[in-house]
Computed example of a mutant assay.
Amino acid sequence: MTDLSQLVLGGAGYAGLFRAVDPFSAQATLDAAWTAGIRSFDTAPHYGAGSSEERLGRFLRGRSGFTVSTKVGRLLFDDPTAAEGAEGFYGTPKRSRRRDYSAAGTRMSVADSLARSGLDRFDTLLVHDPDDHMEQALAETVPELARLRSEGRCVRIGIGVNRVDVALRFVREAPIDVVLIAGRFTLLDRQAETELLPECARRGIRVLAAGVLNSGILADPDRLSTFDYRLAADEVIMRAQAMAKVCAKYEVPLRAAALQFPGRHPMIGGTVIGASSAAEVADTIAMLKVAVPEELWEELDRCL
């Protein structure tokens, strides 16, 4: 069973990732997470073109005892021509995104996020997906985040990415405190295990595991065949289905094993979960409470 205190609610699902989520459902999702004891939240301007930060800020107003991380690297601009479903988000405000990893853009991004959320500061600020902008992010974004940290505008700085090689470069070259790695430390994809986790351990960097269902395939591989936000390869689907069959032998849902897997590693400081409804939060909490026998973990390892 995963320690529920290590859970972080991610902000993409209730901001319309893959399908529109109305404001009432978004608030119900946040309320269900809070009632379950979740006090850590991860958001970003990218999520719902700002609606994730707005919805989270409204929910947290008047509350205390929580932590919030947001990200920099994308600035938002009002845009009446913005297409529905842009970058996978639906039912969002009419805003367009522009990549900006400059020092000025970084400070502007934080100021905009504070205004949207109504918070007075963020606990953690992460460089978001700088894959094609690494030189500028290392030269400008990270130093600016470090200045914000020194000014007391945040407690920790770090990086939020999908690629292990990108994370490793920032771990080795930047004064960061946190790595949020999405989809690379899961039952199906353990790329982070070989170099990234040991490197973070040596440097005392906290690691958060996100995307632990690999875009849905680990929830139900017979029904959902998306992996990394696209159609999964046949070999990936077959491995996920094999894992589901092994779990069925032990009467353990595959998603229970998938959600609990990251938290078994001593270097994982938190697991970021996604949800677009109160029912999804409840299901996730239930899955995290399922007892998973050690023999099942051993069999799942052999499915790789």
Rank of each mutant, 00 (worst) to 15 (best):
T2L: 15
T2H: 14
V8L: 15
L9K: 09
Y14V: 06
G16M: 04
V21E: 00
F24K: 13
A26N: 14
D31Q: 15
A32C: 01
A36I: 07
D42Q: 11
T43G: 02
L60P: 05
R61T: 13
S64Y: 01
S64W: 04
G65A: 07
F66D: 04
V72E: 08
G73L: 03
F77D: 02
T81N: 13
E84P: 03
Y90M: 06
S96W: 02
R98H: 15
R99H: 09
G105D: 12
A111Y: 01
G118D: 13
G118C: 13
L119W: 09
D123I: 01
T124D: 04
D132Q: 03
R147C: 04
S150D: 15
R153M: 08
R163M: 07
F170M: 10
F170L: 12
D177A: 07
L180S: 10
A182V: 04
G183D: 09
T186H: 05
T186K: 08
D189K: 07
E195F: 08
E195T: 11
C200P: 00
R202Y: 03
R206S: 10
G211P: 06
L213M: 15
L218T: 02
P221F: 07
R223A: 09
R223W: 00
D228G: 13
A233L: 07
M238L: 13
R239E: 07
R239W: 11
K249D: 13
R255H: 06
A257N: 00
A258W: 01
P266H: 12
M267I: 00
I273E: 04
S276W: 00
A278R: 03
I285A: 00
I285L: 06
V292R: 10
W297M: 09
L300Q: 10
L304Q: 14
